[in-house]
Write a protein that binds this DNA or RNA. Sequence first.
DNA 1: GTGAAAGCGCTAACAA
DNA 2: TTGTTAGCGCTTTCAC
Lengths: 351, 351
Amino acid sequence: MPTIRDVARLAGVSVATVSRYLNHKGYVSRETAEKVEAAIRALKFEPNEVARGLANQKLNAIAVILPDITNPFFPELLKAIDEQAERYGYNVLVWNARSHASKRSSYARMIRQQYLDGAIIAAHDIAEDEIARLQAEAIPLVLVDRPSAHGVPQIRSRNREGARLAVRHLMAIGAEKIAHLSGPASILPAAERRQGYLDEVEARPWFAPSLIVGGELSIEGGMAATEALLARHPDVDAIFAANDLMAIGALKVLHRRGIRVPEDVALIGFDDIPLAAVVEPELSTVRQPVDVMGRLAVDLLLRRSNARPKKKHPAAQPIERPDDPSSAAGPSVYELEVTVIERASTLRKNR
Amino acid sequence: MPTIRDVARLAGVSVATVSRYLNHKGYVSRETAEKVEAAIRALKFEPNEVARGLANQKLNAIAVILPDITNPFFPELLKAIDEQAERYGYNVLVWNARSHASKRSSYARMIRQQYLDGAIIAAHDIAEDEIARLQAEAIPLVLVDRPSAHGVPQIRSRNREGARLAVRHLMAIGAEKIAHLSGPASILPAAERRQGYLDEVEARPWFAPSLIVGGELSIEGGMAATEALLARHPDVDAIFAANDLMAIGALKVLHRRGIRVPEDVALIGFDDIPLAAVVEPELSTVRQPVDVMGRLAVDLLLRRSNARPKKKHPAAQPIERPDDPSSAAGPSVYELEVTVIERASTLRKNR
DNA sequence: GTGAAAGCGCTAACAA
DNA sequence: TTGTTAGCGCTTTCAC
């Protein structure tokens, strides 16, 4: 492997000049540049990223910390992040919240040791104090779909609003008793969606708190919650699930019981994972713009740490939180618009 | 950030000694070790990975090149790889075959520039000559589910055998006219599965080549292929699909047409992606041991490049290929056992 | 057993 | 504009 030194020698200049040429920093005369260029080509020189990393104290790479890569939402997010990082010329390290950290060492440590530029955290199963530590050490951070003490930039969807849209959609097609399969209260998006549901139905005559059934945000969780729901309220005619996986679980249970969707019970989920369009009947849902979330996450992270972003995000709605003192330094919570996707599971009923 | 120098100073020894202590190389007396230890603790010293990378000419990281991270098979594989890499203390860079490479620069270049230890390639959409180049440069490589010129270690399932098992299973439950939805012939596993199907049915009186319908290995591909199949052979009573996604596509089409599964048509896929257990009816399939594939890939890669593996892989069946001259240096193709998973889509029919 | 010193390949003052 | 040189933080001979 030729080094910058070889290039310098062949071009008859100093390594400093080659370095300047390479990084477009400082002055390099036209002719010198050409000589350097020629030498680089002749030697097939490739600057060594690790050496630059050492010298610059940064490696042009970021970490993405995910809770569970096999949950279909995250590959989508990862893909978006990866593509955007690629545009900046950055590498992406994928860390599994469960298997990493605790084991080898803390995230802060891993990030420092490797001169990473920061981390995108989408894992709700990382403790708040771990986040606090990272922030205390001034490690650039962006949180996706999880909250934290103020100051850390956060990206998430308009969960509450999305839930309201979903419920209104169910009402619009004629639903008269709408239940909600809710996720763990400890997971913010789940809590927000629950609240959105409440916003819409609390005042209705038919509403009863027992129409809300909690469970894990998984297919199994959705199945269990639906069983419980049907035991209590055999007469529901619509269900809003906290996410698509739960909705799919609900679908399975309804199907087994011979309850038709959407004729007997209309069903809507949240996220719009690819699976939603695959099940039968196809699942209506509230779409989160994963791709925007991923791109924005990278932009925010790298903007903070150094690079210049290249695009605007029209879908992003940076909001000021009046109770957040840090907002003086710019908004720290970005909420993205969501939209209802109507599919067969909420096809207007003809009764 | 304290450096090794600070540690040395505080401990009253030289940096060389600290380094030796850190890497368990060379002799360090009991007492010296204790002093160093104390200094490290006192300073909260964390060795810098990038600097070690430079000095060692290796960064303890590998690249994983995937064709499409949103295809549910790959997150599973990635997870397994990630967990195993973690055990070795290695980092994983995830590269998307489509978006990377061509763009920035070649894989070979990226791997060298970053002192990576090698790459696991699961992308069938990487050209053979790209692989050849990597190998020519002696970059450690392991291929998963894709073939290549000999010499490069390859991991895959017993696709042909699995296909035979699937078809035999269909026969065992009473199927009398079995069709096959096959993937692109250019993708090796797809070709092997097709061959396995042929092995079992070619001699049957009911067999006709038109029972094989090609398509993409996706849900859409499965749908299209099924449409075509039904047009030709409305009387098929069983379908073996080249992978689960295609099978799910078939399921959708059959469902729309009012054809019952498994009563009218039995259906079996291949891979056992999580989705298979989610659709209705649940999909029978041939299971590939993704987790073993991932672990083995990491082991082979790192064994070649340096580290010592820690476990055996009982499911792995290294096979010698008599026509492969390189097998003198050890087997280069590992075929993993597969098993039929019986679910509702092939429940024995009572006619 | 331990330390001095020369790298690993590149960047960035500071001079010239 | 360009070159000299001192790092970046760690590893590794090679003496002692």
